[in-house]
Design a binder for these strands. Structure first.
Lengths: 229, 229
DNA sequence: ATTACTATCTCACGAGTAC
DNA sequence: TGTACTCGTGAGATAGTAA
């Protein structure tokens, strides 16, 4: 079989760029070396090896050498390309969390029921949340990290407000799916007293009831991410 | 800057495939090693180096290790991908010839005017060729090679026939552009007495007149190729 | 100016193994 | 089971140079 060596990938790509797929293209090893950021000698060796393995054909007319890519070279390149393509396309593009439902209703419960927030929830999420928030204790370090990385992604922004006595901070809402079943929103509060390993959820419905889960149950949350490509 | 090493490309691709773009994915170095057809030790080193260069983040929770690809890792991968993509897309997808117009009308001239051929030319090319063929002496070895490779590509097939006395071979026609100006067809004859370095052209019009060229002039022929992707 | 040889160096990899 | 060290080997790269 003799697979294409990885260090030859960029060299072959350079030859494609130079148009060597269908026609013999004159090329010097020193210019090729510059293109692939290697020495002239390395470029020369690459060409010799690519030829030996049937990825290119070479033609010498006195001093000058011309190179053409073979069908084998083309298909091998296409193969590499599609490996990369499919690997980059694997993006269910969501951030996932696993944790355990905590007792009580969550610190945010009281605040989230305030008119200054509920009006915005109705307008921006399309519903007034079921009273009370669901607190989830994240299971592992990686999910705490995932929570931090969430902040880098677009969210539904619910602005803070003032009731004359005090001000209330903003709330970022990340629409999510709980246990692949119930639509909810993971909320990040501007001001929170939680430690990092706890997240809060709001939903149109009673999440515990809808998922038939109770305090201490394992829970799985998936936040879809808008691809930034 | 510290560029992504080529030998890390497939490793990073594998991590993408495993879904490590947005979430920390648990992975063992031995399974990764198998995936990239390298040893466990090599996989371990790849992860360490990818981390050192900021392409991935790692998280250890006791024994197990989780990996996530960083934005830098993502963009670097995208960069490699687009290099390959654009290099593969460089396909004016044509085979080119350069040569010199020869004197006389070419060996094929007499035959190409026979009814058995002209009927097919009219049907398949849409015209009856201008009487006489144009012979071109190819300038260089690479063009002789290009002529050979032409045979691998689809052509308009004009079948051979018999007039009772003798049989006449098939003619393969490759529609082409002469000097980026005149439409013609490069013809390959089943039976020819030419040496390899000569090609013949037919056209609806008088090529010499249309291109204002004469015997001894340099001529440039481009045969478009139907992409086989 | 070329290409490509030889010698040398570096570093990628795998074997063995500690933890 | 795991990860990741050290070390030996050899592939890949460069320098020097012949043709």
């Amino acid at each position: 079989m003799s697979e294409l060596k990885v260090q030859h990938i960029l060299t072959l790509a350079e030859l494609f760029t130079k148009g060597a797929r269908y026609n013999f293209i004159p090329i010097t090893t020193s210019s090729l070396g510059k293109s692939i950021r290697k020495s002239q000698q390395a470029a020369s060796k690459h060409l010799l090896e690519l030829e030996a393995n049937g990825y290119i054909e070479r033609l010498r007319t006195g001093q000058k050498v011309s190179v053409r890519i073979t069908t084998k070279g083309h298909s091998e390149m296409t193969k590499i390309f599609s490996i990369l393509k499919s690997s980059l396309e694997v993006s269910p593009s969501s951030i996932e969390f696993r944790g355990v439902i905590m007792s009580g209703m969550g610190e945010g419960a009281y605040y989230m029921a305030m008119k200054g927030y509920t009006k915005q929830f109705k307008a921006k999420l399309g519903y007034v949340p079921f009273p009370g928030t669901l607190n989830v204790k994240l299971k592992d370090k990686e999910f705490v990290e995932a929570k931090r990385s969430l902040e880098g992604y677009p969210a539904v922004m619910v602005n803070g407000f003032s009731d004359g006595k005090r001000t209330y901070g903003w709330v970022k809402c990340y629409p999510c799916k709980v246990n692949n079943l119930v639509d909810a929103s993971l909320i990040l509060l501007e001001r929170t007293h939680h430690d990092d390993s706890i997240i809060e959820l709001i939903s149109k419905d009673n999440i515990k009831k809808a998922t038939k889960l109770s305090t201490g149950s394992q829970i799985y949350i998936r936040v879809p991410i808008k691809s930034t490509n």
